[in-house]
Deep mutational scan, measured.
Amino acid sequence: TQVHVDGVTYTFSNPEEAKKFADEMAKRKGGTWEIKDGHIHVE
């Protein structure tokens, strides 16, 4: 599962880990995350 944050791609083999990471990054940025085309995007 790929997580895209500010133009950087992080790859996780476990989708649950990817979601936890996205959640943390979104909180830090004061933003949100969503799943697009099977990838997670942090806004």
Rank of each mutant, 00 (worst) to 15 (best):
P15Q: 12
E34K: 10
H41A: 05
S13W: 10
P15M: 15
R28P: 04
A26C: 13
K19G: 06
A18K: 00
S13T: 11
T9M: 12
Y10C: 11
F21D: 00
K27V: 11
F21N: 00
K19N: 05
K20T: 11
T11D: 06
E16R: 08
M25V: 13
E16C: 14
G7H: 07
M25Y: 09
A22N: 01
A26E: 02
V3N: 00
Y10T: 04
F12I: 01
V3I: 03
N14E: 09
H41N: 07
R28M: 15
G30V: 02
K19F: 15
D6R: 05
E34W: 15
P15D: 10
S13F: 10
V3S: 00
T9N: 05
A18F: 01
K27S: 10
M25A: 09
H39R: 05
P15L: 15
T9G: 03
N14H: 09
K29E: 10
E16S: 09
K27Y: 13
K36F: 08
T11N: 09
V8F: 12
P15E: 13
E24F: 12
W33Q: 04
E24Y: 13
E24C: 15
N14I: 08
G7V: 02
G31K: 03
G38C: 09
N14Q: 08
H41M: 10
I40Q: 02
H39A: 12
K20R: 12
E34T: 13
T32S: 13
K36E: 06
T11Y: 14
K29M: 15
Y10E: 00
N14S: 11
E17T: 10
D37M: 05
G31V: 06
I35E: 12
G31D: 04
H39V: 15
G31L: 06
E43L: 15
G7T: 05
N14R: 07
K20A: 13
T9W: 11
A26T: 08
I35R: 03
G31A: 05
V42W: 04
S13M: 11
N14G: 08
T32C: 14
A18T: 01
G30N: 09
V42Y: 04
V5A: 07
T11H: 11
F21M: 02
R28G: 11
Q2E: 10
K20I: 12
F12N: 00
W33T: 06
D37A: 06
T11P: 05
N14F: 07
H41D: 05
T32R: 13
I35W: 15
K36S: 07
Q2V: 12
H4K: 05
D6K: 05
H39G: 07
D37V: 03
D6H: 06
A26V: 14
K27C: 14
D37H: 05
H4L: 07
G30I: 02
P15W: 15
K27H: 12
E16H: 09
V8L: 12
A18C: 06
F21Y: 06
Q2T: 11
F21S: 00
N14D: 14
K29R: 11
G30R: 05
F21H: 01
G31M: 07
